[in-house]
């Protein structure tokens, strides 16, 4: 079967696909939870600075990943 399926590449796609393709949404969801989840707002209805920083770090990583992907496409690496 090795002639027909490149197991090595396929395994890479699956492993990194799960890491990136499932990890990034999860990270984004974590950011949403930190900023808008239960207990995020104090009595005054404000979100604490710590939470904002943590949440935006999550979003930041996602945004950087997207920009990185654009750069990757532009560099012709596909």
């Amino acid at each position: 079967m090795n002639e027909f399926v490149e197991w090595q590449s396929l395994a890479n796609v699956v492993i990194f696909g799960i890491l990136v393709g499932a990890g990034l949404p999860a990270l984004f969801a974590l950011g949403v939870r930190i900023i808008a989840g239960p207990g995020a707002r104090d009595e005054a209805g404000r979100v604490s600075t710590g939470r904002l920083i943590a949440g935006w770090t999550c979003f930041g990583v996602t945004i950087i990943a997207i920009l990185g992907a654009v750069a990757y496409i532009a560099a012709g690496g596909h």
Partner: peptide, 21 residues
């Protein structure tokens, strides 16, 4: 969101690893 990110990741990774899907 989860679906599109998964699509983008798998498409780009698969061409990167030379196993175009």
């Amino acid at each position: 969101m989860a679906a599109e990110t998964s699509s983008a990741a798998v498409i780009l990774l698969s061409s990167h690893f030379g196993y175009s899907l």
